[in-house]
Design a protein around this nucleic acid. Structure first.
Lengths: 394, 394
DNA sequence: AAGAGTTAGTTTATCAATTAAACTATGATT
DNA sequence: AATCATAGTTTAATTGATAAACTAACTCTT
């Protein structure tokens, strides 16, 4: 019957409590008085919010601060050790799992190789990784608050994996299986969306309102942050910018289309061109990285072309979104040194000055952990939301 | 000092008042009791909101409704005649102005030809159009509440026109000039953003959360609606999807880039190919429209190709945004009949089934008035916002 | 070291808003 | 005429924010 979400006093409280909490997290250690000044909230309001946050163990009084001619302030600090969270980067041939506290700080990391992409095999390996991380978690008031899984595929709003081409999975409900097994909240999310969320909260995209995270691995996936929030589209599958047509009559892509960006600007593209150039009998990313460090001219040339091709897609993204930053992440990011210049040159050539000035290109700050830390950040955010405090309130 | 927008009771009231108003506007005539049921707000709350809305003349009691075994309800109705608004579509060779009531219903429309794109000439013609529309406005409590101007160019967050290539304007502050002249609020907005906003409120995009409006005229501009709100990017110049690279090594574009979508899928592209095909000595859009109706095979062929090229860009948009609908507007929209099939075919060929299923292609419901009605909708929305009621509350 | 001034944080009284419940008004049905 | 049903208002209670008063505790000056 209800068609809208109405407002009441409890909404007000929730918003203000989130603001107080966020202020403590980002600017702590901080006193009640300072919070009041920074946020504009009344001292009394701040006091009540803080005492509730302390009661919930989210915030601690950490001692007295310095006085500048009056009573000493009591400094408040976000206590990240009240709970822990698990994030998994489910790759095509590996599983990378992290255990973090509620501040997103890494406590433990595990990587294993995957021999098969068969669903049941992967699930059992996944469970082993999760169990092992759980055992490493210190005792804490809230324990493990959730598990997040980042997957290379399309995920619908109910966390069903619709299609993961490189894993050859279709319509699988991993969330349900893991919830039945572990009885904690599970989040399944596309890897690029995960990376975007993570970088926005902890990494290269902190405090940037609008940003696009470009995950360049075997293919290219993108995660879109608008107004500090992940944009997922009307059915949860936005951000397939790897399938931007950049050459309408170009090569056929496995997606059914032609001339998709990822055919020219991904790890797959780089390796294919390396083979074509006969750089070596067997090439992989690590090999190319070493060769690049040795300044192998053929490899540098390949990277130069790769950078240009990446640039072309970024032009499209910037023209579309006019974002504050674009963050390049995933495995290609470590080639930053060799691809940044050709990227910049293409942008300079192909963008209007207004667009050029307003978007900065950055590389992932979370590195190879960006996906795992990213999905992890979803479960942390969900946990706080359940406790009526939202993360990242503007 | 304040870093965030804190919440208080007045915010709650504003939200709920907006919800009540929106319910009356969209579902009126409606009684207080029904509003309470629909929104979940308490009857008392609804009563106070309604009485304030009546006091502000926004809402009227329009008589008694039918009883189903009890006291007769008093029906409430949004009164659109309390004020009027002006919207201008400033084209390259025309000015189209509309006068509407606050419901967005057209009262008067004027079109004039522009002989020159020189700034001072245009401004004086523009003022003439505005004055003439003002004279046509009936007497009303609030009078003319604002004037909106839609322009084919980039507009920054302060409504300065940064660059309008086809008008050859750079950095002009039209808003200031008109405010000094008319002393009413002026809004200057990019034409595609205007169209998007208008279609979302009154047209083909009603009640759709995420949508992209594609304005295909001489060039291609796009307006992005996310979460029922116009997305303008970090410096107000998002939506330049006409400059999507769809052929990385294609023709040079005036924007500095190469192979931009609008070189293949706009009015400009259509006319250029028509000339190349020597369809006639002098071709314009109206001529082609007539020829298409006569089923001139050469023209049909051109339109077929145009449709395919439009489709390629739409594939990019759908992969990026996964929107609920895409709305095609501006002058190419009247060729719907001849371009819709090739567009659909390209989408079927090039999109994954999940994307294909979730986005519907529509054509502008507001037609040639979509820009004028669109900017107009901004001034109306601003007027209501000033009176603490937001339009289009979810 | 006493007092003046300053800053931190809490308490109190008040205000604004929503709401449940009681109440008034008005009709339909039996 | 009596009973039930529905619409809308009034009232009292509740929640939350806030200004102002107040307590606490410290620094600096003389």
């Amino acid at each position: 019957m209800r068609s809208q979400q109405t407002a009441s006093n409890s909404l007000v409280k929730q918003i203000n409590k989130s603001i107080v909490f966020e202020t403590i997290k980002t600017k702590g250690p901080i006193s009640r008085a300072q919070i009041s000044k920074e946020t504009g909230l009344n001292k009394a309001t701040v006091s009540t919010m803080v005492s509730e946050l302390i009661k919930a163990s989210f915030v601690q009084e950490i001692g007295e601060g310095k006085s500048s001619g009056g009573r000493k302030p009591v400094m408040l600090y976000f206590n990240p050790h009240v709970g822990y969270s698990i994030g998994i980067d489910l790759g095509v041939n590996y599983i990378l799992g992290v255990l973090t506290d509620l501040g997103g700080n890494m406590v433990e990391e595990i990587t294993i190789k995957l021999e098969s992409t068969e669903f049941t095999v992967v699930v059992s390996q996944l469970q082993a990784v999760i169990e092992s991380l759980m055992n490493k978690a210190p005792e804490s008031p809230y324990g493990i608050v959730g598990i997040g899984i980042g997957v290379p595929g399309q995920v619908d709003p109910h966390d069903t994996i619709l299609f993961a081409p490189n894993l050859q999975w279709k319509n699988v409900n991993l969330k349900q299986i893991l919830e039945n097994r572990f009885h904690i909240p599970i989040v399944v999310e596309n890897e690029a969306n995960a990376g975007a969320h993570g970088e926005q909260l902890y990494g290269a995209g902190k405090n940037i309102k609008n940003q696009v995270y470009v995950s360049i691995g075997i293919g290219i996936g993108t995660g879109i942050i608008i107004n500090h929030q992940l944009y997922k589209g009307s059915s949860g599958i936005s951000g397939e910018m790897g399938h931007f047509t950049i050459d309408a009559n170009g090569q056929k892509c496995s997606c059914g289309s032609q001339g998709c960006w990822e055919l020219y600007a991904s790890e797959k593209a780089l390796l294919a061109s390396a083979e074509k150039e006969k750089i070596a009998t067997s090439v992989d990313l690590d090999f190319l990285y070493e060769e690049a460090k040795e300044e192998n001219p053929k490899v540098l040339n390949l990277l130069h072309t790769l950078g240009e091709n990446i640039g072309i897609g970024l032009v499209n993204i910037i023209n579309t979104f006019n974002p504050g930053v674009i963050i390049i992440g995933n495995r290609i990011a470590k080639f930053e040194h060799w691809i940044i210049n050709p990227i910049q040159r293409i942008l300079d050539e192909r963008l209007s000055i207004y667009h050029r000035e307003n978007t900065e290109i950055r590389f992932s700050a979370l590195g190879i952990d960006s996906i795992a830390l990213g999905v992890n950040s979803f479960t942390i955010a969900n946990f706080f939301r359940k406790h009526k405090v939202q993360m990242g309130v503007e």
